[in-house]
């Protein structure tokens, strides 16, 4: 192996032909500015049966979340240089594997749906826009940018242990996104729905979510805001 070559060990499992999963090694020629997605595409050129999701290539569609060297990331905006010359790529932890790096994200999406991730307005709509001050709008920065890639929730131990009961960081970030929106009028119902020991309170501030978010968002902080608001409402 020469110096411009990198070694990738990728997780393989095709339920049509494999009885159990295995890691397979590929060598990929390093190019300047190479992203992990480029390396995975190179592998797909070598072996078209290798399977992973990807699309926009610039970190906005959220398709290509994987686990590289033990950390969740978006392949298209993760520099190969930062990962070193020997890279282990696995599917997101804790999710059922469909094939190779493709996992079943349906539970993640269900949690998103469970927090009613949409603006609810009880007043009649004005003929023009609902006014919002720039300061109120600023409160949505760091929240609305979520791309639902799943890097955060699938790196969260609380989510691994109680995926049926704990909403997980991505869904809770969206919950706060609407609680924080001056236009939304469902605050009490949103807070009531998060009561109990699991949905919200299973977060133990481990902060893996913050560590891995490819968009630099902070679900732990958002969860803290929800807890504070609940407390404020309670007294």
């Amino acid at each position: 192996m020469n110096s411009t070559s990198i070694k990738l060990s990728v997780y393989r499992f095709n339920p049509d032909v494999d009885s159990k999963p295995y890691q397979q090694e590929f060598n990929v020629e390093f190019q300047a500015g190479m992203m992990l997605r480029d390396a995975l595409l190179d592998i797909k050129k070598q072996d078209e049966s290798f399977t992973f999701r990807h699309s926009c290539g610039e970190g906005v569609c959220g398709s290509d979340g994987v686990n590289a060297n033990g950390k969740n990331c978006l392949a298209c905006i993760t520099s190969v240089e930062d990962l070193g010359t020997s890279i282990v790529v696995r599917p997101f932890p804790g999710r059922p594997v469909i094939r190779d790096l493709v996992v079943d994200m349906s539970q993640f999406y269900q949690q998103y749906k469970d927090v009613k991730p949409y603006l609810v307005r009880k007043d009649p709509m004005p003929e023009v826009e609902i006014l919002q001050s720039p300061e109120d709008r600023d409160k949505l920065d760091g929240l609305y940018e979520c791309i639902l890639c799943g890097c955060c929730s699938t790196s969260c131990p609380s989510f691994w242990w109680n995926p049926e009961k704990f909403h997980g960081p991505a869904a809770l970030l969206q919950s706060w996104r609407f609680l924080a929106d001056s236009r939304d009028q469902l605050t009490d119902e949103r807070l009531d729905a998060l009561e109990g020991p699991y949905k919200l309170f299973r977060c133990h501030s481990i902060m893996n979510c913050v560590d891995v978010c490819p968009k630099g968002l902070n679900p732990t902080k958002a969860i803290g805001h929800i807890k504070q608001l609940m407390l404020k409402k309670a007294i």
């Binding site: 826009e129 919002q132 109120d136 709008r137 929106d181 939304d184």
Partner: peptide
């Protein structure tokens, strides 16, 4: 806007 799009805002 009514459906929730977080448009940037003027003063």
């Amino acid at each position: 806007e009514h459906s929730g799009v977080p448009f940037s805002r003027l003063d």
